[in-house]
Nucleic acid binder design. Sequence first.
DNA 1: ACCTGAACACCGTTCAAGT
DNA 2: ACCTGAACACCGTTCAAGT
Lengths: 213, 213
Amino acid sequence: MAVQRVGDTERAHPTPPEGLKSRDRILWAASTMLSEGAGAALSVRAVAERAGVSTGSLRHHFPTQRALMDAMLKVVFDLVLPEAGFRDTTIPPRDRLLGCVQGLLVPPDSTLGAREAWLTVHERYIASEPTQAMRAEYQAMQSEVNRRVEECLNVLVEEGALPAGDTTRRARFLLTLANGVAIEQVLPSEDAHIATELDMLRTGVDLVLDNRI
Amino acid sequence: MAVQRVGDTERAHPTPPEGLKSRDRILWAASTMLSEGAGAALSVRAVAERAGVSTGSLRHHFPTQRALMDAMLKVVFDLVLPEAGFRDTTIPPRDRLLGCVQGLLVPPDSTLGAREAWLTVHERYIASEPTQAMRAEYQAMQSEVNRRVEECLNVLVEEGALPAGDTTRRARFLLTLANGVAIEQVLPSEDAHIATELDMLRTGVDLVLDNRI
DNA sequence: ACCTGAACACCGTTCAAGT
DNA sequence: ACCTGAACACCGTTCAAGT
């Protein structure tokens, strides 16, 4: 939607920290603006102005608007999701399970953004009629992922943080939910939607921990 | 992405049927262009030109782009997926909600199988850098889907089959789970996995009906 | 009431030019 | 290599003016 009015003389917007290079200033500005809720206003010009750089500079570092979004979301997610092993008993069980499931959203090849990662999956396992070898490869990958989630669940059961139950079914539920979240991350969701994606995973984890699944 | 080129001399586009009034000509044009896919940007100007009306006329009937999208998608969806199903009180609430959510797994163009349907979604909204128009198109479709699920939930609440609660959140949960199931249907799952996909949806529906979400 | 088309305020992207 | 800012081709919306 076009805003149709302008000329606000207010310049109360915070500026990026001093020492940062252009690229980081841009990411800082974009992340800040996203967290401020003004999601729709994440235009090239708005971000560039906030970062204190030109649109050309922004495009030099992020050739496309999508590239900017991907890089920014990676920053945001990395802040929220610290890399932690699920055997670390100093972390609450809920967060350990959440971290384990959320790790699935960013496939092993984590230099790639969510979008590129998904494009790879699509091309390899969906686009072309998958060969028998491809099917096997995917299923092996999937069962490794499944194994890890189940192991995490079993650890929690051993600790007594989770009542014994159908581990396979619980893992399947979490994986299905994670797949749903993953695909929503890649589709052009509304801004409000993006904010609730992590909440969906949290809900799923809580359901399992509350023995509802 | 802006297209940056213009001046196509081709004028092979079909025109709307003769007898139609402006409003229906517009809806006809928009629906046709949507079904033609191929990145057809559903912009005001493009739809207006195809319908043979001015942008002003279009705005007179549909004050906002969103209003146009909503009206058009309602037409398209009603052709394939009649809305009446979930008001039939002779069917158990659980099955009505399940039917409503399951309907989402089969996109409007139901002549296609799950795989072809998914390939279309992928190509239109993921593969290519989505234009602003494409984003809007997807989001409008998504909100129509969302509207239907929420309406179904509200009907169940009115009947007393479901305690009042956060309808938006419940719908989001079911949609995310449905997305997860949809993508698992398309990926080369193991046979055992396939058998449990519908069970996952059933589980989600039960969780909502048991007021766990 | 219905419709027109120009004008306005945006948008993402490209690019010659600077340092 | 990094950065600038103008220019291009779009976009949705508004509005005085016609019928």
